[in-house]
Design a protein around this nucleic acid. Structure first.
Lengths: 234, 234
DNA sequence: CGTCTATTTGAGATGCGTCAACCGTTGTGG
DNA sequence: CCACAACGGTTGACGCATCTCAAATAGACG
């Protein structure tokens, strides 16, 4: 959402606006909600599950994806600490949410959430904003998968991750990717091999380093940004 | 949204639930709002425009798209009668909305809408649902552009249009596409030529007829559905 | 140490993009 | 009324970016 650019893999960042003084009903509800731990590869929920809860990621990371009947998979987003998942599903979940590392989640019963939303207009508006942010992120990803080349997609992905890291007060230049090459491939609409080759190519160009396969160091940010075809619009 | 399938090109269908008795604040507001007419190719709004209004399509059709600095374009959705456009943009519009045929629009000042949303919890919740629907549609499109072949994309597109037509009480088997091949191509992440060739191929297979380039007759629905790779999930 | 999974790398195939020509329709002006 | 330009659509030939298939390597774990 923030930048007019690239892909924003965080489905819902429900940070309260800085102007917020008193805790909202949602935050109160979150604070007293129950906690759940899931291991890597464990499902938070699956397509078709009744939508009894929505969740906020406390620690860890979750992949959100849809699958076609023949097994092809599209990852539509990754959820990181602070992000809400499961919003906007009426009755049944319409996708799968699978932890990609050990994860702690706050659980919110949707029934009580709906009830609260009916009473507190601020909460309804907050939900609206949260989903609107997620929509903006999904559209950016759509632009990426629909129009960009393999290199541009991978670079956009790395830059988006870097920005997210920076926003949450961490290092924009060095980070560990929690997801596998397969997750990245299914997110960007590429194959594992193409993602791997692209990483190798970027390393060969001296733009990044890969101390381990999941660790990325950005060596030349400016040139990466140039490669992203990043700046939308004229 | 409705079907768990294919792509749903309508950004926001703000139909009230059947259970709704009294007109909501939003509907009242819509009824008394001002009307605007735009010609084909005219902009409803452009990226960067201040978000002073959101719009509901009364008649006609609108293409919603983002463009990269080098001109590549991604159509993220088409808006048809009943659909709301411009939701979820804080301050400035983040995409372009361009009429693809002569169109009538209801205009809603966002200021008064936000004000209403603060008072009426039902309105906030309605906005939330509207954006959630749009999000679901965008995710389906993402699945299509990210994972499906050219033929599957075009067939998904035709089937989605057919379903929409049927839902609005029109013919599911024969319809006129309001958009150009270029619009379809930029929507599906293909080129004009590939879209055209795919139409020709489907005609050659006897699955559709094309009396004019913009008129489609579905001859063999079952086989088209089989071609779509349509049914998501196992 | 051996197994299993993730990743990398290579070689070859192909689906779609690119470039270019052509066609049909529409609108315009001489 | 016709010539012509402009535009959208179709078709063909060719190239290439990415996919597919396959094998080697590297970690992770028991």
């Amino acid at each position: 959402m923030s930048t007019p650019t690239g892909l924003q893999p965080h489905p819902v960042a429900l940070r309260t606006a800085v102007a917020d003084v008193q805790p909202s009903a949602l935050e109160q509800r979150l604070a007293q909600s129950s906690l759940r731990r899931v291991e890597a590869k464990e499902f938070v929920f699956a397509e078709g599950d009744p939508t009894t809860h929505i969740f906020q990621v406390e620690t860890g990371a979750v992949a959100l994806y849809k699958v076609l009947c023949d097994g092809r998979r599209q990852v539509v987003g990754f959820a990181y600490p602070g992000d809400l998942i499961g919003l906007g599903a009426e009755g049944e979940h319409v996708m799968n949410a699978q932890a990609i590392k050990p994860t702690r989640l706050r659980c919110l019963p949707v029934a009580s959430l709906n009830q609260l939303a009916r009473q507190d207009p601020r909460l309804g508006f907050k939900l609206y904003e949260a989903v609107a942010r997620e929509l903006a992120a999904t559209r950016d990803l759509l632009l990426t998968t629909g129009q960009r080349s393999a290199t541009e997609r991978v670079v956009s992905f790395l830059l988006a991750f870097s920005r997210r890291n920076e926003r949450s007060g961490k290092d924009a230049r060095a980070f560990d990717l929690p997801m596998t090459r397969a997750d990245i491939a299914d997110f960007l609409g590429l194959t594992i091999e193409t993602v791997s080759r692209t990483f190798t190519k970027l390393r060969g160009m001296g733009l990044i380093e890969l101390p381990q396969s999941c660790t990325v160091r950005i060596k030349n940010l400016a040139e990466l940004q140039a490669l992203a075809g990043d700046t939308e619009e004229a």
